[in-house]
Design a protein around this nucleic acid. Structure first.
Length: 267
DNA sequence: AATGCCTGCAACCGCGCATTG
DNA sequence: CCAATGCGCGGTTGCAGGCAT
């Protein structure tokens, strides 16, 4: 099957959007919505393909877009989710209101990969830790030192925790290198946990569920500092927990990293 | 001051999946 | 059932601005 191009390429604008085009697109969507992206540019009088319009709207013009730099918490959330989901940017974006998959993808490639790399260097040994850091990271470390770095590490209630998985693990944070940042020697920087811990988790938890009694799994989740914490908040939509395959994958990763493969829970 | 390099980000491209007729 | 179409996603690119030399 020969696929037709998404739009007639002839005579359509490409590249950066002008403010006029933005205005046309916004006012059209506000008035009529965006039922059919392919037809939209023609109806709105834009010399763009529908795909381009959709991208512009979703990534830039949508009214609920959150602009500006990512907070530390948002970055930690991305790192957590990326650990779980991989490059499923849209699934990650779904957990970050106001942020787009494109934005998250960019942040990951420009900032967070460096953070992780730096963290690995730092945990690999003092020699590696003294390597030259990126410009971004130097600035970030400076600004972080000026801010109240304790705020985002504060303990939270299970309810609050359930709606904010971002606080579970902090990776590559200069100021946390000596406190609660996980420092396991094992691949993936995961701390060891004992069998009792996992059996407790399994008795109280299943994918898609929420742990309501943290005393049963070791008290304050922040004290645990283990990467499965997002599991505790997982909802049976968008990503892990949404189907059997993902759930199996997830549990396999969790147990493999924990160094044991107990019986999988019923799904 | 000039030049080249690097970084960040907006936008494009191609593919796969879902839907429709 | 199958082809056509539309949409969404992830990877990649190109450009503008900042920075180093």
């Amino acid at each position: 099957m020969v696929r037709a191009p998404c739009c007639e390429k002839m005579g359509l604008n490409k590249g950066p959007w002008t403010s006029e085009e933005d205005q046309i697109l916004v006012s059209y969507i506000q008035q009529y919505g965006h039922g059919n992206w392919r037809a939209l540019p023609k109806q709105a009088g834009l010399l763009r393909c529908g795909k381009s319009c959709r991208l512009r709207w979703i990534n830039y013009l949508r009214p609920d877009i959150k602009r500006g730099n990512f907070s530390r918490e948002e970055e930690d959330t991305i790192i957590n989710l990326h650990e779980m989901l991989g490059n499923r940017w849209s699934a990650i974006a779904a957990k970050l209101p106001g942020r787009t998959d494109n934005e998250i993808k960019n942040v990951w490639h420009t900032h967070l990969k460096k953070r992780l790399k730096h963290h690995e260097e730092a945990t690999a040994g003092p020699k590696a830790a003294t390597k030259r850091r990126s410009k971004y990271y130097d600035q970030e470390a400076k600004s972080q030192a000026n801010s109240d770095s304790l705020e985002h590490r504060r303990p939270v209630s299970p309810q609050e925790y359930s709606s904010d998985m971002s606080s579970s693990v902090t990776i590559g944070d200069d100021n946390n290198d000596n406190d609660t940042c996980p420092k396991a020697e094992s691949p993936g920087n995961f701390p060891e946990v004992d069998e009792d811990f996992w059996s407790e988790v399994l008795s109280t938890e299943s994918p898609g569920g929420v742990v309501s009694d943290f005393s049963a799994v070791g008290g304050d989740p922040h004290d645990l500092q283990v990467p499965f914490s997002p599991l505790l908040t997982m909802e049976p939509v968008n990503g892990y927990g949404s189907n059997m395959h993902d759930s199996m994958d997830f549990w396999f990763n969790v147990f493999t990293r924990a160094g044991e493969i107990p019986e999988l829970p019923d799904f």
